[in-house]
Design a protein around this nucleic acid. Structure first.
Lengths: 333, 333
DNA sequence: TTGAAAGCGTTACCAA
DNA sequence: TTGGTAACGCTTTCAA
């Protein structure tokens, strides 16, 4: 016993005080119907008296269930992810699950070890926008229940956003405003969402015979966006679509610094609708995802898997919605 | 065994394959010096062969150490907290600790149960800006190592920001600009930081003989700030200081909506320097805290406690720095 | 240097 | 309905 730390109350202490066996304490607490009311009473009283709370760790050893879920994500500094984590956490609490969090700092190489490290302590994983190669992630198939968010990769169930539709809406909006040439500032090459959005954008522009200019890949951060801004201006594009809001914000910032009018000279569209998108000047037109739903839906998808039901390969696609704000306007003449 | 889930590799499997006892496997892996090189070789080979990773849960049962730390915070949607969590997480990973995260959604009543639920699975806690009453938190003293962030409460070690100095800088700045009447939009009453900042502000304004107007308490969110904006305008104040940046952003937003010039008619100062503070228009003058340090320092304070050393009541106070941006200017004449 | 055995706190099983 | 016993996977004595 470590000095200064109170010894934890165990089931035996309760059993002793209640004058019953440990088995009965266990039953009385887990399934009150299986013991005599009188016993239940005694046990409950003793437990309360001693402030007994069963040790989940010990329990998990025998039951094989930890009541923990692991959440792995690339970067908590990207405001998109805290929203997701929060919704996961909320749903998990409702179900009496605790949440392990692992931020991989956008380093694909850290993901597999991170998952490995948590594997024994969780009943399942929610992988948010994982960056690791398909085959690396697939090595966990069959080992632990896994639901992937913002990426599709067999054989895992997934929750994704309907990027194609979001891009269609954004392009329709810009087309209606007279834009014919759009630049895309891409996010990490390792991001499935990035490829998905790019694909959707390509389809949408092609469908309307518009020009799509590739402005290269940058980090999904404000600095990344700022770095891309000058490249974008050097093209023929009158509008720019960013992989996410942070990049879009960086574009806005740099445009502002250079005295480039938004949307006068160029229109800007983001993706995600993070909180701050509405607060900047001009407020950012962006494609909103039901961020709060992602976590909830993910947990609910994971639940049956953790219970042992092979609900295989559910693919939930959440709707997207273009939010039109001040950063988009008519194309310059 | 649950269908479809691969049976985990245990120490016995390794022992069998290596042709040694479980004890030897344990020793070979934990302290290679205590076994013959040949044995070590055989064990390591077998472990690699089978992909064996010791079960931390089982280990913790006997060692009493989980290598997990629990992080409890009020609201991940407040951009301040993800920064803190990220720095905790980074430091924890360096030390091979995993992080449990619990978001209490600003509900003080949820904190104690949240801590209780995690208690058996962690070696210690980092409580970020806990909202629960002192006595509730103190009930954990002696049970588990706890370090409190953004609040001071005996007998726990704490990491706080030097709010008084931050406020002094902000007030000096406003005073120099000619402001003589300042409004304060307070955050949650249950927030120690709020009281600390308010106290610092009171001292700073008193020291300069300035008027301090109380604009009431609001939720530490953009909406909270927006709600307070009109109240602030109804006072004599020419500058307003908000409990945090989110509130300040809400003020800016509402002022903008009402056509109130910032800083022409009124200057606005925030606290925390969250990412977006620099991105809004006008960019927000704010008091920066070394957010990334908070987590690191917190973990480092927790470490000796978890090792059993009673490092008692260290109190680390991190410096603050006023960041002057566009939202503050000369007082109107 | 090694193996056997005990034990961590709990739940599951089998008898009574 | 209850208690005893085994077992979960691991580490830690204690002997050999």
């Amino acid at each position: 016993m470590i000095k200064g730390l109170a010894m934890a109350v165990t089931i035996k202490d309760v059993a002793r005080l209640a004058g019953v066996s440990a088995s009965s304490v266990c039953r009385a607490l887990a399934d009150p119907a299986r013991v005599r009311p009188e016993t239940r009473e005694r046990v409950e009283h003793a437990a309360r008296e001693l402030g007994y709370h069963p040790n989940r760790v010990a329990r998990s050893l025998i039951t094989g269930r930890t009541l923990n879920i692991g959440v792995v994500l690339p970067d908590l500094a990207n405001p998109f992810f805290p929203s997701v984590v929060k919704s996961i956490q909320t749903r998990a609490r409702e179900l009496d699950y605790a949440v392990f969090l692992s931020d991989t700092d956008e380093d694909p190489a850290v993901e597999v070890p991170a998952i490995r490290a948590l594997a024994k302590q969780v009943d399942g994983f929610l992988l948010c926008s994982p960056r690791a190669p398909d085959e690396d992630l697939r090595s966990f198939a069959g080992e632990k229940p896994i639901v992937v968010l913002n990426r599709r990769i067999t054989p895992f169930p997934s929750v994704t956003a309907d990027s194609a539709d979001g891009m269609r809406q954004a392009v329709a909006h810009l087309h209606a405003l007279g834009h014919r040439s759009i630049a895309y500032v891409a996010g990490p090459r390792t991001s499935w969402s990035n490829r998905d959005r790019q694909r959707g954008l390509r389809a949408a522009t092609a469908a309307r015979g518009m020009t799509l200019v590739d402005a290269g890949n940058v980090a999904p951060t404000v600095d990344g966006g700022a770095a891309a801004a000058d490249l974008v201006l050097a093209t023929s594009a009158t509008a720019v679509l960013a992989y996410n809001d942070l990049i879009a914000l960086g574009l806005l910032q740099r445009f502002h610094a250079r005295g480039v009018a938004v949307p006068g000279r160029i229109s800007v569209v983001g993706f995600d609708d993070i909180l701050v998108a509405a607060l900047v000047g001009p407020p950012l037109t962006t494609v909103a995802i039901a961020k709060e739903q992602i976590g909830r839906v993910g947990v609910d998808l994971l639940l049956p898997l953790m219970a042992g039901h092979e609900d295989g390969t559910a693919r939930r696609v959440l709707p997207t919605q273009l939010i039109v704000r001040g950063s988009t306007g008519p194309a310059p003449v």
